[in-house]
């Protein structure tokens, strides 16, 4: 393993964290959209808001982390991706602006109609943003981003079967992660009745995502044969782990073991991401740009690795502090 591989691995760990934490965030927003009318959906929306409030910003900084490591560690890869895929990236960025600000503003306004407007903006952008991000991944993974500046087709690089699969899967996975998370929160903080409602949704979502993934196998075989080949060879063990963990999380949900369901759902998502990485190794932007070709100079790589290590030492305890304080306060609230 080279230094560049190590830097990329750290970046990928950041991407995984983004997919899990921000994914659950996006998904919660999606359920906000489907929570029903203002009065009927009130309880669910309150729970969603309560589960997100102090952590959503921290969850989303993972994306910034991924971007900065990518552009410093692998500049040509970042330039190629961002310039060719600028349309879905702009749409995703605008979606994040709408989502973050609507979520922030919704709480501070008193009037119900303005709240409803912000709520709708929040929910809608939660739905479309992961789609565009998934489409970006699909474009990269199916080899539609050639090296160079805006060298690829700015339209077909993200409007294509693999991108559509990536986008739909991203939305589905976000929604699934969120329901699993909300089941546990609802059980603990509100009522088993609400938890059951989310559980029913989680089960339906799981089946939908499973079906999409199965169709996806066919899509990839015809649209992205190289990726398909990688996923069924080097990536195969991870894909199997993912499938098993996914099934396990469904069974656990069925038995109302929400804590364990969370962990297995996270494992399933993590395994898919790393399976993708394994499938396209040693390419960073397939089919022609390898990790070594894209890597920055040696001093930069070493400096990056050291900085990432020192940074993590500062960061991880702070993150743990945030989540524990937050979880503890959940308990406090229900016990007072």
């Amino acid at each position: 393993m080279t230094v560049a591989d190590a830097v990329l691995a750290v970046m990928f760990a950041g991407l995984t964290a983004y997919a899990l934490f921000a994914g659950a965030d996006f998904g919660a927003g999606v359920w906000d959209l489907f929570a029903g009318g203002t009065r009927r959906g009130r309880q669910q929306r309150d729970l969603i808001e309560h589960s997100l409030a102090p952590v959503w910003e921290a969850n989303h900084v993972w994306l910034i982390f991924v971007l900065v490591v990518l552009w410093t560690g692998f500049p040509p890869a970042f330039a190629a991706i961002a310039s060719t895929l600028y349309i879905p990236l702009t749409l995703a960025a605008l979606g994040m602006i709408a989502r973050g600000s609507a979520f922030a503003f919704r709480k501070t306004v008193p009037s119900l109609s303005v709240q409803r407007f912000f709520g709708a903006a929040f929910a809608f952008s939660s739905f479309v943003t992961p789609y565009f991000l998934g489409a970006v991944v699909g474009g990269i993974a199916s080899g539609r981003v050639p090296p160079g500046i805006a060298a690829g087709d700015v339209v077909t690089s993200w409007i294509n079967p693999t991108s559509a699969l990536g986008g739909v899967l991203a939305v589905g996975v976000c929604a699934y992660l969120a329901t699993v998370l909300l089941c546990a929160d609802a059980q603990r903080d509100v009522s088993s009745e609400l938890a059951d409602r989310f559980r029913a949704r989680a089960l339906v979502t799981a089946i939908v995502v499973g079906v999409i993934a199965a169709i996806g196998i066919l899509v990839l075989r015809s649209d992205a044969p190289r990726l398909f080949d990688g996923l069924t060879h080097r990536g195969l063990p991870l894909m199997i782990v993912s499938a098993l963990a996914g099934v396990a999380s469904i069974l656990l949900l069925f038995r109302r073991r929400y804590g364990w369901a969370r962990i297995t759902a996270a494992v399933a998502v993590t395994a898919v991401l790393w399976g993708w990485a394994a499938a396209q190794y040693p390419y960073i932007v397939p089919p022609s740009l390898t990790i070594t070709e894209a890597a920055a100079g040696h001093t930069t790589q070493i400096t990056m690795l050291v900085s990432l290590l020192i940074g993590s030492v500062l960061l991880l305890p702070a993150l743990v502090l945030l989540y524990t304080l937050f979880q503890r306060s959940h308990h406090d609230q229900t016990t007072v």
Binding site: I64, W71, A82, A93, M96, R99, G100, S101, A104
Partner: peptide, 16 residues
């Protein structure tokens, strides 16, 4: 909150 979202698009723009 608005600083964070407006900063996110900046990072995209550096490459776009």
């Amino acid at each position: 909150a608005v600083g964070a979202v407006s900063g996110t698009i900046l990072s995209f723009e550096m490459g776009m």
